[in-house]
Design a protein around this nucleic acid. Structure first.
Lengths: 342, 342
DNA sequence: CCATTGCGTGTAAACGCTTGCACGAAGAAT
DNA sequence: ATTCTTCGTGCAAGCGTTTACACGCAATGG
């Protein structure tokens, strides 16, 4: 039963109907304990009959709060980021906040542009992914005094609030596992390392672990590809071209690894008999493909939850630890085994 | 080089620096062709030196436009929805719009609540998924006169703007394919059909195709499970319990199908030799698992693009067709084959 | 019994922008 | 030269809230 015909009800309409001032209506709706129970009820009743829905922009303008958090991610096409975002959104929603989402496809300039757009839209806080960002981004964050938190990476410099884990340690971890299995000839199908410290760190971790065994990755055995299945397929093909075929191929994430495994199948290579393949992320699919993927599990959903709570706390002027390093875990499955003796 | 110390620059600051009125600055920034080239340049220069970023809420309040589009999806954890959202966000971004995102985990009440929240935040338009929604949602859309578009389903009633495809036809299509292969004993691991016309329609389509061959799905051979891998695994187990084992199991989407195939592997059943498995969606993973999945391809990204353009057109007062039925395509791969002769 | 406190409410001034209207200048038409 | 447009700009009135402050009243304490 709509009472007004042309336009949506405003605070003033509710006030009139409840025979109180707009101030009281405003308080009744946002700080219920501040008004007498009797008034509260009248106001609520009036709001209900009018189908009142607050005008967010007006509210934001007056209160200088939008109750909106922005998130900028490389892409949602990778299920693993979608996972973090899903957790983030859920946690924000429970606290009455809404998520503004943007993606940039691993392009630093686009990232700067969309971040600006989000700030312009008045987000109360911002979730970014990774530590490497366009200087403009950090500049805007600072000049707007905007709470933010970096995810998916742990900022060793200590300059930025962040929640993440040690990508380098993860790289070392997987490399050591393969070394333990007896592998000595390695290749890596990495993600694009430019502007992506996650990819850089994983590669660095691998290199570090290998060098402890006096093994170096030759230039031809490190291929950078976009984080897609076809990137994994191509990467595997290129890595095989080298003079000495690797017995283990470390992929920059599970998507690449799954692509690489598919390519092995296509080429008649047996995994792990002919070649061991590993990933990073432990996305759900990792356990479902065959052979099941050996990988490193990252706390994707936890990061979303933590990022949300971190920002909510700061917006509430509650104190929080600025940085949070979450644990990772080596997940041993079937895709990596001891190399065939030759 | 920040010029102001404490607070962000406002329009007035820019105006002062450029020695024009705020009106002119506003116009220079939003309707550049309305001001003289010389003035425009002065204003832009001033805006740049001050690092001016418009205040979205104020702008929205005055112009009654937020340049924000809301989207409400069941979940992002299914890559296939993430795919549509990714395309949606990209298209909106290109037009200067921003995406407010919410999810509800297939809960109709949560959906109504978050939709309300988005409307409250002042979205200019709304993208919903499916045709079945809480009456409150349609009520709010109407009373706020809010442009919206339904996706992932084609509204046969003709009451709603939509972009989607014929889920029932897709169901018939996959069933007919299996019938053509010679299957006669079927089971279906469906998604939860309550409040989900997509799941209902696919099931109905399957039933319709089978009944043309005088085959009926017994109650025990239709299992409803959440759209998760483990749902697929459990579904397959339960479906196998019936007195007559099916030679073909139609799964409600690819996620269920992948789970079902994994369960077959776990049980030592060969796909497709012992049992054929099919899905819906043709998510990327469908072609990468083994056996590769026979499924029906849905135009997921196209829906996102179309939904964005549809809303953008209406917000621009350009005319658009209200409904758009996109084609689907049977993708024949290895997971379904002729049943073994017995 | 008066002063003090606290509570519930109203008044009105922001909040930072957009935009209808008015105005003057300059060019076009008569 | 005079009138009519057109163009570029400024003035100022909103847009729909929140919130500091003021006010009146009741309860409390001395």
């Amino acid at each position: 039963m709509k009472t007004r015909s042309s336009k949506a009800a405003r605070l003033e309409d509710v006030a009139k109907l409840a025979k109180v001032s707009t101030a009281t209506v405003s308080r009744a709706l946002t700080l219920p304990h501040k008004v007498k129970a009797r008034t509260l009820e009248r106001v609520q009743q009036a709001a209900r009959t009018l189908g009142y829905v607050a005008h967010g922009a007006a509210r934001a303008l007056a209160s200088r709060r939008t109750h909106t958090i922005g998130a900028v991610v490389p892409t949602l096409d990778n299920a693993i980021f979608a996972n973090t975002i899903q957790a983030l959104q859920r946690t924000l929603d429970a606290a009455g906040y809404v998520l503004l989402l943007a993606s940039h496809d691993f392009d630093a300039d686009i990232e700067a542009r969309v971040t600006r757009t989000l700030i312009e839209r008045g987000v109360d806080g911002l979730v970014l992914l990774g530590t490497t960002h366009h200087p403009d981004i950090y500049r805007m964050l600072e000049s707007h005094n905007l709470p933010y938190v970096l995810t998916w990476a742990f900022d060793e410099s200590g300059n930025h609030p962040c929640v993440g884990f040690d990508n380098r340690a993860a790289g070392m971890c997987i490399a050591n596992h393969l070394l333990d299995l007896g592998h000595r000839r390695f290749a890596m199908v990495s993600g694009i390392t430019a502007h992506n410290e996650r990819a850089q760190e994983r590669l660095a971790g691998v290199r570090e672990a290998l060098s402890a065994h006096d093994i170096a990755l030759s230039p031809g055995s490190v291929i950078e590809k976009p984080y897609t299945h076809s990137g994994g397929r191509e990467g595997l093909r290129e890595v095989l071209k080298g003079n000495e075929a690797p017995t283990a191929v470390i992929c920059g994430n599970d998507v690449l690894a799954i692509g690489a495994i598919a390519e092995c199948h296509a080429q008649g290579l047996k995994v792990p008999d002919d070649v061991s393949i590993t990933g990073f992320d432990d996305m759900e699919m990792a356990s479902l493909i065959s052979p099941a993927l050996t990988t490193v599990r990252f706390p994707t959903a936890e990061m979303g939850v933590y990022a949300a709570n971190h920002l909510l706390a700061r917006l509430d002027d509650r104190s929080v630890e600025l940085r949070n390093k979450l644990p990772t875990e080596l997940i041993v499955r079937a895709s990596a085994a001891a190399p065939a003796r030759k």
